[in-house]
Nucleic acid binder design. Structure first.
Lengths: 205, 205
DNA sequence: GTCTATACCCAGATAGAC
DNA sequence: GTCTATCTGGGTATAGAC
């Protein structure tokens, strides 16, 4: 690993622990094992390091799209199968240690970084909600749920629960038991999905 | 308003906008109209100002308890009445402008202030969840909901939705339309409550 | 209680030798 | 590409006159 990569890696480590403002360039240089002036041969400023980290994160995450056709097929195999497939796709990316750390950073830095906040709002919140809206509409068409229910409310009711678990973990409990969190996350969101689904489902009751 | 009160008020204003680290003692002094050295006649350090703000907030908030007996009576008058009464109690304190600002501060500072984080976890999250657990147990006893449902999961499924709305507003959208947010918060959480309730209720269907 | 003046520290960043 | 040395500016906080 060359020094540029080391700087990148160490910065993820430190920023996710102490926040951007809580880490100095000297500290990063110290961990890497070079002098702080040498940092500037690789990145033009401290801010540039942060930008590079989030660019990396966004690149990794957006490659992780939800194909609606596939979801529709999964849905035909039953709710359990459908839900498991969907959450596995999302969690596979997240569970890499590096991605966990940047996710923490995303949460704690979003309030004073406009770009980061926009990414969080659009790609992590709005886009998935829209995806769920499509799916609930699909479920209406397949006569799996009641025709009269509000799909947007349903999507939010469903999705925001998991989002709060993420916030709670990354912001309030981090880094206690990342592994355990991911396991519990899966169990809890599945139970929650069932609760929501039960309130609108048609058929056997 | 004397200068100590001015310092207190101005600090709430600035900290909630820019975060604790984003505000200097010079800036506070400038807004108050005194020199920074004069601050130290009233507060021994910048940190002390923050502590005073959160002490004030906690005092105001804990006076706002949920009496289970009253909730039980409200429940007998129907779910709508019951829910409205409960959410009104919570929102009445929150909707004061000053409390809104400190709530924002609570959210953004909780990740690097142990005391604040503990308060958020215990008083804002855990205590209400326990309260809802008691209530759902009560609803079981009154035969309003199914005996076999998991009350903790139900409480979290119910409560975390609202918590995420709060996070979203205070952390990501603040301070856009505080008034509008509170209105929408009421509507959305009520619809959500109905969704959750529908999944477990007994009786007319 | 507020002021001027200043101490002291640490931050991000740059210049130029090697 | 890394170093030493240094600049510049901002931060919190204190001493002591008024």
């Amino acid at each position: 690993m060359n020094n540029k990569e080391k700087i990148f890696q160490v910065s993820i480590e430190l920023f996710s622990k102490y926040g951007f403002d809580g880490v100095s360039v000297r500290q990063i240089a110290g961990e890497v094992g070079i002098k702080e002036s040498s940092i500037y041969n690789h990145y033009s400023s401290k801010q540039e390091i942060l930008n590079a980290i989030f660019e990396y994160y966004i690149d990794e995450m957006v490659s992780d799209e939800i194909p609606l056709e596939q979801a529709s097929l999964n849905l035909d195999k039953g709710f359990d199968f459908f839900y498991k497939a969907g959450s596995d796709a999302f969690l596979s990316k997240l569970k890499e240690e590096r991605m966990m750390k940047i996710t923490r950073l995303l949460f704690i830095e979003s309030y004073h970084n406009d770009e980061v906040r926009d990414f969080l709002k659009k790609s992590i919140i709005e886009a998935p909600v829209e995806g769920w809206i499509s799916l609930f509409n699909l479920m209406k068409a397949k006569n799996l749920i009641r025709k009269d229910c509000d799909v947007r409310q349903l999507s939010e009711s469903f999705f925001y629960y998991g989002m709060f678990l993420l916030y709670e973990h990354f912001f309030l409990n981090y880094p206690e038991d990342d592994e355990k969190f991911l396991e519990e996350f899966l169990v809890k969101t599945e139970r929650h999905a069932r609760t929501i689904f039960d309130s609108v489902k048609l058929g056997d009751d």
